[in-house]
Amino acid sequence: MKKLMNEVGHYVDEMLDGIVLAHPELRRLPGTTVLVRAKKADKVALVSGGGSGHEPAHGGFVGPGMLDAAVAGEMFTSPTPDQILEAIRAVHGDQGVLLIVKNYTGDVMNFEMAAEMATMEGIHVEQVVVDDDVAVQNSTHTIGRRGIAGTVFVHKIAGAAAEAGYPLETVAQIAKRTIANVHSMGVALSPCTVPASGQPSFQLADDEIEIGIGIHGEPGVRREPIRPADDVVDTLLDTILENAAIQAGDDVAVLVNGLGATPLSELYIANRRIAKRLAEQSVNIQQTRVGEYMTSLEMAGFSISLLKLDHELTKLLNAPATTIAWRS
């Protein structure tokens, strides 16, 4: 393992210090792993978070028009309820708090416990759970689909709704509609190494790719030989389109997300194919984002997210936002 780090136990702490030094518009709550922006009490407050290792998520989406606070956990590990509770206490005004959680057993449990504690303190809290990863079969018998890069669309759109002054119930409804409309899938070309373990999360031969990868170095759903970029894009896009009710004439937003060690050039090559495929199906791309939004340390690979838009979601997606990793 070769990493640019000091003490492995200080990894998250030193990263958070580095973020606020580079971006003084963010503040770190003393003694916590919570990043907040200047408090705005007359709107619904948005709190999200998750394990570290997904940078720029989640701190990179804190700012006007998006999140009010992001809670960082240990590497690939959900933040703990006490930290989430600190975030809720710091940002809640008089309009309540919306928690945006990715669908993982640990994240859901920790955010739920924090929500229960905040409710006991008289703070009005709602929680939405993002499950955009179509690589995982949806079934009532399992925990359902994972939350991956499509979560960033939920941050953006719910953030705009909150900024517009909508009440908590409405912001939560809009967030849920966004979640229902966003579908994602990813592929890895090489694994990542969690600093504390020092070992790659899985083994891939030089000529293999892992289809249906998550964002924590966990193995995907199947392993296949490497093939041209267009074919890889088709594999992901076919599964996304099977699951998303997207038809000719629909408007969509596209997110081509690098997982940490994919050259931007390769992401653009992938985007070229995505645009061609959607044009063939007469689907209108209203907005395309290409870059790193939700990474998995130094994993090579990428994910595609498609968000089906309606009039209101389009308006909210285009509303102004000023954060480290998303500006519009």
């Binding site: 933040p79 703990t80 309820p81 640990g106 416990m113």
Partner: peptide, 12 residues
């Protein structure tokens, strides 16, 4: 444990 483990194991 709640404040130091994280993941699913912490709450469990």
């Amino acid at each position: 444990l709640l404040s130091s483990v994280g993941g699913a194991s912490g709450p469990l």
